[in-house]
């Protein structure tokens, strides 16, 4: 089987002898190849179009100036995306800090600790979080979480006011709430990938630890966590990529204030949110539209970097395990399932 996989096209020589079939197969093969190439071309085409349409803003402020100027003011037609970029990073950072430990704990609990009967139901419940649409998270966050957590946020801000980036008056919508919603939204993907990677830990190693007289937790610490570390980190980064690009839910709860907040409980803005909010008013203003599309480009590049790193980590973790067999990496199946 190994040799067969290694042959490009994998066509055994057996049917080389049937000329009619060969012609039909050539067509079949060309069509599929054209399809694959067409996808590549389409993506490149769209990307080029984005760059062209973003050009009015990029040439006016420069790529560097656009990205790092801390000044986004529509009324003065000044577009520096730094406050948006920072807002995106803050909210995604909060999402990681809250969401990743919970996701990993969930993965460990489901894979290694929980009674077998609970496994299936718990998995489904956690992954159903991925089935709730972004706009519904936004609706819930805006109408329930923001008002209900206002008091809690204020008391947090007051209690921990001595810490940097904490304190001040809480309006309701904030980086924190956006981060919290994002944490919930990335939980299923991080958890699914972690579970998938952890389940590649060979039973051999887990049994080795148990047979040495390790408790469950010690077994997790000695055998499961070290082995799956890079895969879990990769899963967390996929979650980060998800959080960075998340739009509608964040738009509804982040407050949409185009400056860098002084505290985690201040209102802010993100790259994705600004595009949704200002897109309507910008329609007739080429510079403004260009700025929004440029913001989309920054977002695009940011997610590309994060995702490339994440994929590399996850696939490295899987290659180590599945050096043989040629199966599609487990993470891909998990990612497909939760729509990452």
């Amino acid at each position: 089987m190994e040799a067969h996989v290694a042959t490009p096209g994998g066509a055994p020589s057996i049917f080389e002898g049937a000329p009619g079939a060969r012609a039909a197969d050539r067509v079949f093969r060309s069509v599929l190849t054209a399809l694959a190439l067409g996808i590549l071309a389409l993506i490149v085409f769209f990307f080029v179009f984005l760059v062209v349409k973003a050009n009015p803003a990029l040439s006016r402020f420069g790529i560097f100036g656009f990205t790092f100027n801390n000044d986004w003011d529509v009324s003065r037609s000044t577009y520096g995306a730094w406050p948006l970029l920072v807002g995106t990073l803050i909210t995604s950072g909060i999402a990681l800090i809250i969401g990743v430990p919970v996701a990993i704990a969930t993965a460990l609990y489901i894979n290694e600790l929980c009674p077998r009967r609970l496994r299936g139901p718990l998995t489904v419940l956690v992954e159903l979080l991925a089935a709730v649409p972004s706009v519904v998270y936004g609706l819930w966050g805006f109408l329930v979480l923001v008002p209900k957590l206002k008091g809690a946020q204020q008391s947090l801000a007051d209690t921990f006011g001595f810490l940097p980036f904490v304190g001040g008056h809480v309006a309701g919508p904030s980086y924190f709430i956006a981060g919290l919603i994002l944490a919930i939204m990335i939980l299923p993907i991080v958890s699914a990938i972690s579970r998938e990677v952890m389940s590649t830990v060979p039973a051999d190693h887990k049994e080795a630890a148990l047979a040495l007289g390790a408790t469950r937790w010690e077994m997790i610490r000695t055998a499961v966590l070290p082995y799956s570390r890079s895969g879990v980190v990769g899963g967390a980064m996929l979650g980060l990529g998800r959080a960075i690009g998340e739009t509608i839910a964040v738009t509804l709860v982040v407050g949409n204030a185009p400056q860098i907040g002084k505290s985690l409980f201040d209102q802010g803005y993100t790259l994705a949110a600004v595009i949704v909010n200002e897109f309507g008013e910008a329609a007739t203003d080429r510079l403004h539209t260009g700025a929004l599309i440029a913001a989309g480009l920054v977002l695009f590049v940011l997610t590309l970097l994060v995702n490339a790193a994440a994929r590399a980590l996850v696939s490295r973790a899987e290659r180590r395990q599945r050096a043989t067999g040629g199966a599609v990496p487990a993470g891909a199946a998990a990612a497909a399932r939760v729509g990452a």
Binding site: L40, G241, G245, L299, A308, A310, A340
Partner: peptide
């Protein structure tokens, strides 16, 4: 192609919107 498909998986949905909007 597989790499591009992976890349596409990570592209935020809003960017797809912008693709079609500009294109």
């Amino acid at each position: 192609v597989r790499y591009f498909v992976d890349v596409l998986t990570g592209v935020p949905s809003i960017v797809f919107g912008l693709f079609i909007y500009t294109g």
